[in-house]
Design a protein around this nucleic acid. Sequence first.
DNA 1: ACAGGGTGTGTTAACGATAACATAAACGGG
DNA 2: CCCGTTTATGTTATCGTTAACACACCCTGT
Lengths: 337, 337
Amino acid sequence: MTPRKPPTMSDVARIAGVSVMTVSRAFKSDSSVSGVTRAAIRKVAEEVGYVFDSTAANLRSQRTDFVAVTIPSINNANFAETLRGLSDGLAGRGLQILLGYTDYDMAKEEELIEQLLRRRPEAIVVTGGKHTERGRRLLANAGIPVVETWDLPEAPVGHVVGFSNAAAVRGMVDHFVARGLTRIAFIGGDADRDTRGTDRRAGFIAAMQAQGLDATRLIDAGVPPISMREGAEAMARLLQALPDTEAVICVSDLSAFGALTECQRRGVAVPSQISVAGFGDYEIGAVCVPALSTINPFPREIGARAAALILAVRDGAQIGPARIEIVPELLIRQSSR
Amino acid sequence: MTPRKPPTMSDVARIAGVSVMTVSRAFKSDSSVSGVTRAAIRKVAEEVGYVFDSTAANLRSQRTDFVAVTIPSINNANFAETLRGLSDGLAGRGLQILLGYTDYDMAKEEELIEQLLRRRPEAIVVTGGKHTERGRRLLANAGIPVVETWDLPEAPVGHVVGFSNAAAVRGMVDHFVARGLTRIAFIGGDADRDTRGTDRRAGFIAAMQAQGLDATRLIDAGVPPISMREGAEAMARLLQALPDTEAVICVSDLSAFGALTECQRRGVAVPSQISVAGFGDYEIGAVCVPALSTINPFPREIGARAAALILAVRDGAQIGPARIEIVPELLIRQSSR
DNA sequence: ACAGGGTGTGTTAACGATAACATAAACGGG
DNA sequence: CCCGTTTATGTTATCGTTAACACACCCTGT
């Protein structure tokens, strides 16, 4: 369409009859340029179709206004909420998110971290507290604020905004036990990939053992992300293999919903024959019939807190490594009793 | 952690005893550097913790390896699929996505487009074919490939990869009519914001009129994105106001699922008393009971095709404005008869 | 009237990489 | 064994903006 190369500041400066520096200042809100000059420059810029070139500004000013973020999957409402919390918190201050997804793969995460750091972000937010060794080193040496989320790692790289996946699941186990249910199963994903899912499973086992109960009713639903369909399939296997199970905790609301539908298809009444619980407080859990008992880890708040932390550091706050613990909320609905 | 400023290429060059240019070449796969030299340089780089600085490379080479993408909302499985199609297609060629979301707001889209163009992406993919006038101008003058998706605009800015929302809904209307249902309703969002939703509603009205049927059973479910809950509320209003309705088409599977649950709560049998259809072929539609009739617009393929288009242009293909039409698939399941 | 301070603008150099060109060494075919 | 070609490396200038500094001008108070 426009084969000639795009106008630069110096084109605008020439036409407006000022120096490049004045044009530069006319585009920053804080700097001192007279109102008339600024208006004239803006007008010329709009006329010639000038679009500010951040790549040059980034290099010279050593500031990119990027915040790098890694999430396991784009297609997940929980992570999307965290992203939105981040985005809303940062956008107001002109910070743009540079997003990458890891596909629940630590090797891919390492590669991604390196790729993102090349862009010289001013902070990096990662999901989870487990990384490859090189990934950790890259983060630690990046010289920018690092925020690990969705977890409470024992040896964090930098800041932490997260919660204990294990403790959250324990709350659900205890709830079931308090209602007199003892034959409780867990539907989760493959241990090698989904670290948060694995933490939840570990939390389940620990909580069951603490209650003196059998913690061997574990159904493997496959590789994360665990879909609704996989939840349904896992439930089918559970009902087949261990028909006397009284309650089941699923690694997420999505798999829990799948499990629920499997019960519906098989005429197994929920919760009178079996109680079902999920994780994550996805919208579906609140809307489906019966509504799902679940755990809300406040994903949006995780993002918002991480954003606030980054802004505080950016504003020069001399805070040491922060460790912000979010306390998930247990939501008991009709799917459990 | 590391207060000293990060090493640059010239630091690596000095330590490795070569020129900066050789270091630069050692980081590009294609260029000619001897194996020993390259290995030595890589080793030094790893030791000193050198991380390549794209900001400088971007400026000098006038290439950023960015592809800008705007979507209405991050938290939507359909757009997430398109994003994944794009991402998977582009990542292999070293292109990174620069994402922004518009919140279904054209003014916000305009601002976003400008913000993204400042980063000098090498192509831009936008959702939808409606933009503010300035937004259009920005896109047209950007001097990079522009791809509009999820729509078939009459006067596209550049390339198009999309489908007709109206025609897709007509297919569903015709399906219902063929089954002998005539009192058909539409649950959709506010006309001002969601242009695709509005297109679907318009398609509904046109199809009903073409069939000589009453096209006034329109329920407004609020501002997009229309949630499951809003779908349920809209269904409640529909059942109240027009209890003789035989079928309802919802703007998305999410609202359709909400509508379905409302029927369950009220003891209205689906599909024997009322048929329900959605749009988008979300996983929930396939898993829920009864499974939802819906329309699959192949969102992943939209992204994949857009990516392929961008790569082709990048490789120097002299293609004029492409118009790739995706034909959505009608999926009839148990929720309709 | 004049020092002192703010305001608006200009000049120069630099951010850290790479394009373009130059050149020395290694290679290979008749 | 020599010349043309390829391979490996170096030198110089530059991408488009902004930091840092400089300076002229206009206030304001005494």
